[in-house]
């Protein structure tokens, strides 16, 4: 089983997001700690479990990201992934999910693979688009938000359960497919010291657009763009209801009915 894990480096979940005064569609990156996208950690963990179970093949991490993304890649390598490729070019700074998926598909279609694993969502743009576009561009099936998977290597099929609204379903597909990983699928391992040492030594080739055979101007490929980022509407602290529990509950219900009008 050759597995490709697509990962992204994103701001830490607690990072303070401020917009750039000179460019309101961008955030100020200085002072932000970047981490491996938490959902992509589940993706790497699942790829390791599949490799351990099927007993052969390699796991290759692919990311489209600037130099700082190397830290996220090395985190994945330290967990146990075998290889990594980073795609970058300074024109890629504002790419959208479509362009991301397009570049991933160009890279992946030149490789031998049985399975592509992505995180459910990148917690910076929160778009939930890339994996499904990638599957379409590669003309292969997709199984998103999986809660378990079972691979049959002789039949070359994968059977997964998925969380759907109000329930779950079980689906099966012929490999290769794109699967996406939500929280709850597994518990990502901590890298061992040896894993970390090995990861440090690995070469991470960087591919440019030219290497991928892309001659178009990236600006012509991008389909959507952020015009402006604003802080969320601020919520002011409301009222603390005081008194005996019984009084407080009666007052709360009255306020919910008459003031907030939500009951």
């Amino acid at each position: 089983m050759n597995i490709i894990a697509c990962i992204k480096q994103v701001p830490d979940t607690e990072a303070i997001i401020r917009t750039d005064a000179t460019n309101p569609s961008k955030i100020v990156e200085r002072d932000i700690k970047f981490i491996l996208n938490p959902y992509d950690e589940y993706a790497i963990e699942e790829s390791l479990r599949i490799k351990e179970k099927t007993g052969n093949g390699e796991i290759t991490i692919i990311t489209i990201g600037p130099e700082r993304s190397e830290t996220a890649i090395r985190d994945g390598l330290a967990m146990g992934a075998d290889n990594a490729i980073r795609i970058w070019d300074d024109t890629l700074a504002d790419i959208d999910p479509f362009t991301t998926a397009l570049l991933l598909s160009k890279t992946i279609s030149q490789m031998e693979y049985d399975l592509i694993i992505c995180g459910k969502q990148a917690i910076d743009d929160d778009y939930i688009q890339t994996p499904s576009i990638l599957a379409e561009l590669l003309s292969i099936p997709q199984i998103q938000f999986i809660t378990s998977q079972e691979i049959n290597t002789s039949e070359r099929t994968i059977t997964c359960t998925q969380e759907i609204d109000g329930g779950r379903r079980t689906v099966r597909a012929k490999l290769p497919v794109v699967i996406t990983t939500p929280k709850g699928l597994n518990e990502p391992r901590y890298p061992s010291l040896r894993g970390k040492m090995q990861a440090k030594k690995k070469e991470i080739p960087v591919k440019s657009l030219k290497d991928l055979g892309i001659t178009e101007n990236v600006m012509d490929l991008i389909k959507i763009k952020t015009m402006k980022l604003s802080p969320p509407p601020s919520r002011k602290a409301g009222r603390i209801l005081e008194g005996e529990p019984e009084e407080v509950v009666i007052e709360l219900i009255r306020l919910l009915r008459e003031e907030a009008k939500v009951l």
Binding site: T19, D126, K223, I224, M227, L229
Partner: peptide, 14 residues
Amino acid sequence: PMFGGRAIASVSTT
């Protein structure tokens, strides 16, 4: 909403 709702983006097609 982006960044877990810590910023609100106004998005359009190119």
